[in-house]
Amino acid sequence: MIQLYPASKRYTVKNDWLESNLSFSFGEYYDPSNIRFGPLRVFNDDTVQPGRGFGIHPHREAEIVSIVLKGQLKHEDNLGNAGIIGTGSIQRISAGTGVLHSEFNASKQEEVQFLQLWFSPDEKKLTPSYEDISYDLEQMHNQLLPVISHTGSERVAKIHQDLTLYLSRLDGKETLTFRQEEGRRIYVFTIEGEISINNDNILKSRDAARITDLPEITIQASQDSFFLLIDLPGGEF
């Protein structure tokens, strides 16, 4: 089954420094029918104004992934990590038993856009950890490039959950096929452009699809497109 979630149906939080489009219940937005998709708990599409950001705050028991789409994000945490990541970089925080961090727009001129995803970890009470990686933009051209996985590897961040997150830039009219084991889930989010899944399920910019019981899908771009695909475990969460 393919369920489409148009960008316009997302919940929007907007103030003088932040616009956040929420795909799942988060903060003030609480919809008991929209809590998670498997281990995926949070999918926030954030834009932060220059010099502004999220001050120091804690998290626990979550695998937190930030994907910078535009601009630069400045990270600091109580594990001793500090740095700036930009387009082509991904940050993974395993909050485990507790981490304090802040995330600010590193630029005084340009806004920063990033996706923040939270997953339930496959194990509780993990030691908190941090990792950031840069991926090769060329390697996702007309193919699926893994950037986060359970095992991790060079230029693939390791996450404590049985999932793989792929990025792809697909030229207009190009097609990709994705296969997974039966019983798993697929989440697709279009970052830019327009794609179709199995011909008649159209995803425009910032639309999403939650897919179950369909271990093989075909993705076609109707124009040059940039999208994200997550291979997620099945079962109860």
Partner: peptide
């Protein structure tokens, strides 16, 4: 002040 918040998004 003591506050009890949800850990996903800090809802009060």
């Amino acid at each position: 002040m003591l506050m009890i918040r949800h850990s996903i998004g800090s809802r009060l």
